[in-house]
């Protein structure tokens, strides 16, 4: 194809051909097979570039979201608890252990009923795991270890450098939110968590829960209640949210 042809393709795609030019273009498209093939490829490439460059952020959000959902799904089916059919003494031990911890939890629950809830009652965050799929990456390792060791200052440094490379990593954004709340950087934490909770990712409900905890820590009871009320039934933290809500109201 000649340069002139490519210029025509572009003009056609952006709707800039005059009626006469358009007729001539369509005529050639129908009669000249090479021209038609070249145009199809030009059109596909243009659409490809548009999708990849214009929607870069959108695609990154999609992939991040997909990653979470995929991991949630596969962790669930990998989870040996619930699938074990082990009936040995070991499993009896677990039964007693579970029973004991239920009693303990009930005790804590009843005890807490007479107390004003505080942030400390709820900040027992589960350990995070960032290195399963990117074990070669030192910075992910450092982030994971610092966070799990509750060394939130150091975790923040690691999260920030991860986000510098990959600013749309929503999972890291969420953990950063937790670390900010832990280190009392409420303004930045609340901004970040609000953004996440208004988004459409798998983290949105988790972000609401952490935001509510942030308000609890700031002793902003009203904002905490308002935020807790936005956590829907299907959310993982729904029960905890309702529990906290009862105590606050």
């Amino acid at each position: 194809m000649e340069d002139q042809d490519y210029i025509m393709f572009e003009a056609y795609l952006s709707g800039d051909l005059s009626a006469d030019e358009l007729n001539a273009f369509n005529e050639r498209l129908n009669t000249d097979e090479q021209f038609q093939k070249a145009f199809k490829m030009y059109r596909d490439l243009s659409s490809h570039l548009e999708h990849n460059i214009t929607n870069e952020q959108e695609s990154a959000d999609f992939k991040a979201n997909l990653d979470v959902i995929s991991n949630q799904y596969f962790n669930k089916i990998d989870d040996p608890i619930g699938t074990t059919t082990d009936e040995s003494g070991k499993s009896n031990f677990y039964k007693y252990a579970i029973a004991a911890s239920v009693i303990l939890l009930l005790g804590i629950f009843v005890f807490n009923q007479f107390n004003t809830p505080t942030y400390k009652d709820y900040n027992n965050f589960e350990p995070i795991s960032l290195t399963v799929r990117s074990s070669d990456n030192a910075i992910f390792n450092q982030a994971e270890q610092s966070f799990n060791a509750k060394n939130y200052e150091e975790a923040l440094v690691a999260f920030n450098s991860i986000l510098e490379e990959d600013f749309s990593n929503l999972e890291i954004q969420l953990y950063k939110g937790i670390a900010l709340v832990e280190t009392n950087q409420f303004e930045e934490a609340d901004d970040l968590l609000k953004k996440l909770s208004q988004g459409n990712s798998a983290y949105k409900h988790k972000a609401k829960w952490i935001l509510a905890l942030s308000y609890l820590k700031q002793e902003n009871k009203l904002a905490c209640i308002e935020t807790l009320k936005t956590i829907p039934k299907e959310a993982e933290d729904y029960k905890r949210a309702q529990d906290l809500l009862k105590k606050l109201e």
Binding site: Y6, I7, F9, E10, A38, M41, Y42, L45, S46
Partner: peptide
């Protein structure tokens, strides 16, 4: 700029081909 855009995509079609 516009001419360049079409020629660059043209260049890309040649590479692909």
């Amino acid at each position: 700029a516009r001419k360049k855009k079409s020629l660059c995509i043209g260049q890309l079609t040649k590479l692909v081909k």
